[in-house]
Amino acid sequence: MSQLVVQRGLQRGPGQGVRRGPRTRPLIASVTALALAALLTVLLPQPAGAYPPDLPSKAVAQSELDALTVRAESSSAPYDRDLFPHWITIDGCTTRETVLRRDGDGVEVGSDCYPTAGSWYSEFDGETRTAPADVHIDHVVALSEAWDSGASEWTTDRRQDFANDLTGPQLIAVTAEVNISKSDHDPAEWVPPLASKRCAYAKMWIHTKSRWDLSVDPAERTALQPLLDTCSY
């Protein structure tokens, strides 16, 4: 895939008149087959890990970016990762285990919900791992970045919700190497090694900051626009 998200919908070719008669039947059959294949692409479940949830369109992301508050990063107290309770357990699975199941392919789990088999494609660098220990769950907007962008004023419960956000595109399975490289950098300091993933990365970042009402600093805002401009939709 050239981007994290798969474009959904039927593709139509240029409109052409169809001659009636014996020669139209193969054409109609061909068009019907193509339409059916496209419809199945829409209706059938997409491969695990193909895209994060709630990824916005380019137009929506642009509107969100334009509305973000731009200000220098600051916080009322020093950052402490423990202020963001993460990998909480819900229905017997931790958030990390849930993302591993969601983003992996052919994932099997034991009675403790931990994967015993599967493979994970890392969207940021294009690498695949088969051992869950080699897979990290990246907070797209790092917890320390969130802290300096407004989360220092939140309650602990809200920070917990942010750190375990499965609804938006804030958590994604990646290789340990790319997660360590990304660390707590923002888009002015780090972008995915794969250029084809930078559009989706910008969408994920913008949408997360918008959903959680977090600010962006001037350099971050400047860096996001050209990344979003690479998107085709």
Rank of each mutant, 00 (worst) to 15 (best):
A117I: 09
R20K: 07
P14N: 01
P22V: 05
A200T: 14
A146I: 10
L39M: 11
G168D: 11
Q46M: 14
D80P: 01
A33L: 06
R158T: 13
A133M: 03
N164W: 07
F84S: 11
P56M: 11
E64D: 12
K197Y: 06
D186R: 05
T94Q: 03
I206A: 09
T89H: 01
A117F: 05
Y114I: 04
D91F: 02
C199K: 14
D229S: 03
E108H: 08
A142K: 04
D66T: 00
A163V: 11
P192E: 05
G106P: 01
R158V: 10
D217P: 07
T32L: 12
H139L: 00
E189A: 08
A146G: 04
F162S: 05
Y114W: 12
A195F: 15
A67H: 07
D184L: 09
F124Y: 15
G168A: 00
V141H: 05
I90F: 02
Y233F: 09
L227R: 02
S149P: 06
E97I: 04
D161W: 01
D82F: 07
T230M: 13
H86D: 06
P193N: 11
L166W: 06
K209Y: 04
T175N: 02
R101F: 04
A35I: 11
Q11A: 15
Y114L: 08
F162Q: 01
R198D: 10
G21S: 06
V70F: 04
V140R: 08
A142W: 00
E97R: 13
A188N: 15
V109E: 14
D91M: 08
T230A: 11
R20Q: 15
R129P: 08
V174E: 10
G15A: 14
C199A: 08
T222W: 07
A59K: 13
G118W: 09
L214S: 12
S57H: 06
P169F: 00
R71T: 02
G21D: 13
E108F: 07
T94A: 11
L166V: 09
W190S: 04
G126W: 01
P226E: 01
V191P: 03
P132R: 12
D91T: 01
C199Y: 14
V178R: 04
E145Y: 00
L143V: 15
V99N: 06
F84T: 05
E189C: 00
G104E: 03
G49S: 05
C199F: 10
W87Q: 14
V109G: 04
P192I: 04
I206W: 06
D186T: 06
F124G: 09
A35W: 05
P132F: 13
K209D: 05
K58G: 13
T222S: 12
Q16L: 13
L228V: 15
A202G: 11
P26C: 10
A50D: 15
A176Y: 11
D148P: 03
P187H: 04
V140Y: 05
